[in-house]
Computed example of a mutant assay.
Amino acid sequence: MASRHMVFRAFYALGFTPWDGHPQSATLRELVEGNHRLPPGSALDVGCGTGDASIYLAQHGWQVTGVDFTPKALRKARAKARAAQVTVNFVDADVTHLSQAGIGPGFQLIVDNGCFHGMSGSDRELYVQEITAVAASGARLFMVAFRPSGRFGPAGVEQSEIERRFTPAWSLLSATDEPRPPDANRFSARFRARSYVLQRQA
């Protein structure tokens, strides 16, 4: 866990954050704004970074908690939320230790824009335990994850691993290839992303 913390804090210190500033996924927008949108409730944004998804959810009536372990990212997130005139509870915590940080339970929507796919196997096991513990019955988990690329960057994850790790507490509702952002830089353009929607079982 310490190495993961150090890597992301170094990225933010250098200003190298290619995951920031992209438009929200069409899959997430469908969950929040679509014809069969979820009723606004309590949402958790894990690995929230500088808060783009958290702010988006708050703008659409959700009560949002954003979690990240990078203080610089959280400072930027709080400033962006103030500028957008929305309220988000940003918490300095690790997704593998949510309960220790006093987060949850009862979230109806959990958002992960690129957190799970960069974790080690042991951290992924803890992630599933913690996310399951804070999710309400019937909750949706929206996840964007890179496929394994064998190149420098996040480890990536296959759909089969997601299904294996989250079964039986969750069921996979959809898996969709994410279009490459029109403003993709040379770093992010090398990776293929998919979005997943899972539902917490009763």
Results as ranks from 00 to 15, higher is better:
residue 157 V to W: 03
residue 162 I to E: 05
residue 170 W to G: 07
residue 201 Q to T: 10
residue 115 C to W: 01
residue 7 V to T: 15
residue 129 Q to F: 00
residue 63 Q to H: 15
residue 186 R to Y: 12
residue 182 P to L: 15
residue 193 A to C: 12
residue 86 V to P: 08
residue 193 A to I: 06
residue 143 M to F: 03
residue 117 H to W: 00
residue 88 V to K: 10
residue 19 W to Y: 07
residue 117 H to E: 00
residue 135 A to T: 06
residue 97 H to W: 01
residue 184 A to M: 13
residue 39 P to F: 01
residue 142 F to E: 04
residue 45 D to N: 00
residue 63 Q to E: 13
residue 125 E to I: 07
residue 93 A to R: 01
residue 163 E to V: 14
residue 170 W to E: 10
residue 66 G to V: 08
residue 171 S to A: 13
residue 20 D to V: 01
residue 105 P to K: 07
residue 7 V to Q: 14
residue 142 F to I: 02
residue 84 A to F: 12
residue 68 D to W: 05
residue 80 K to A: 12
residue 54 S to K: 07
residue 178 E to W: 09
residue 16 F to M: 06
residue 64 V to N: 07
residue 1 M to R: 11
residue 137 S to Q: 13
residue 171 S to R: 14
residue 165 R to Q: 15
residue 14 L to K: 15
residue 93 A to C: 04
residue 11 F to W: 15
residue 104 G to L: 02
residue 171 S to Q: 14
residue 170 W to N: 04
residue 60 H to T: 03
residue 22 H to W: 06
residue 122 S to K: 04
residue 20 D to I: 03
residue 4 R to D: 08
residue 57 L to N: 04
residue 77 A to W: 03
residue 53 A to F: 00
residue 121 G to Q: 06
residue 77 A to C: 05
residue 112 D to L: 00
residue 26 A to L: 09
residue 61 G to C: 08
residue 11 F to K: 11
residue 146 F to Y: 11
residue 126 L to R: 06
residue 159 Q to V: 09
residue 5 H to L: 13
residue 131 I to K: 02
residue 90 F to I: 04
residue 79 A to W: 13
residue 90 F to G: 04
residue 70 T to W: 03
residue 55 I to N: 02
residue 159 Q to S: 10
residue 122 S to F: 01
residue 104 G to W: 03
residue 105 P to T: 07
residue 175 A to Y: 13
